[in-house]
């Protein structure tokens, strides 16, 4: 991945500061490739790594990772054949059934995911679905609140990766289950907003099997000399399409076998 770096160190720091500003003060910025048209996905990860380093230096705790662009349709749309990944910190976590403020978000959207909590570390390359299952303590249902910081939803993969895969907030909850007791391909999911069903699907929508997304995530991490330590919380990617939310909205995600996750959005 380092081989495809085109940005100099000072450019990486500059772009990181731009993304950090947009994320922490909730404003939209033009996509980064407007200024750096040759920017690669590796450059995007270099900016994301710098952002992660800064947040950790400020006292944020790294709690896990997320996979994005995990549906075939989204990958084709972006012209890629692997998911993108982003990191998750304690500052992004919100409790189940809480009021989530949107005043520090740009254009938040919610999607339903199966999340994995690890009991053993996972290292790539060569991480397989079986490795993921063997390292999993339990799975839980989760709602990811994504928030692209790019104006007018205009972005490309390098910019999205630099923006930490649009990660913003997440809510895990429902019912923890042993992965081996479930068929992780066929878990049905219904996303309701204000009592109305707005998105639906089954967990196999994520690369045919959510563990596939986790395995790919671990292999991408390996390219950055990173791994998932035991205890990591990992979200495997949106089963449903992302749905826009605004203050006043109540959201409930209902999962077969895993219970539900609810939250409400406020100013």
């Amino acid at each position: 991945m380092k081989a495809n770096l085109t940005l100099a160190r000072e450019d990486i720091v500059r772009l990181c500061e731009r993304v950090e500003g947009a994320q922490t003060r909730a404003y939209a910025i033009p996509k980064l490739t407007d200024e750096y048209p040759a920017m690669t996905i590796a450059d995007g990860y270099a900016v994301q790594s710098e952002l992660r380093r800064r947040f950790i230096a400020q006292g944020h705790r790294l709690v896990g990772w997320k996979a994005g662009l995990t549906s075939k349709a989204k990958m084709q749309q972006m012209g890629v054949d692997v998911p993108s990944i982003g990191f998750l910190t304690d500052r992004m976590a919100r409790p189940e059934n809480s009021a989530i403020s949107t005043c520090d978000l740009v254009h938040p959207r919610v999607e339903c995911e199966v999340a994995f909590v690890l009991k053993k570390e996972l290292r790539g390359p060569g991480c397989s679905r079986e490795d993921v299952l063997a390292a999993t303590d339990y799975v839980v249902p989760a709602v990811e609140i994504i928030d692209s910081r790019f104006s007018g939803f205009k972005f490309d993969l390098a910019s999205v990766v630099a923006d930490n895969g649009s990660s913003a907030r997440f809510v895990a909850g429902g019912r923890a289950r042993y992965a081996e007791e479930l068929d992780l391909r066929t878990l049905g999911v219904v996303l309701e907003k204000n009592g109305e069903m707005v998105a639906m699907g089954a967990s196999g929508a994520v690369l045919g099997h959510p563990t596939e997304a986790i395995a790919m995530l671990v292999n991408i991490l390996a390219e950055m000399d990173e791994h998932l330590p035991a205890g990591s919380f990992v979200m495997s990617g949106g089963i449903t399409e992302a749905v826009a939310v605004k203050p006043g909205d109540n959201v409930v995600a209902r999962f077969q076998e895993l219970g539900s996750v609810s939250m409400r959005f406020v100013e």
């Binding site: 391909r185 066929t186 049905g188 196999g204 077969q256």
Partner: peptide, 17 residues
């Protein structure tokens, strides 16, 4: 809440519930 997975010729075609 039972999920529905539809595969065509071994490839995922669509999901539902």
């Amino acid at each position: 809440l039972a999920g529905m997975l539809v595969e065509k010729n071994g490839e995922l075609f669509s999901t539902g519930v």
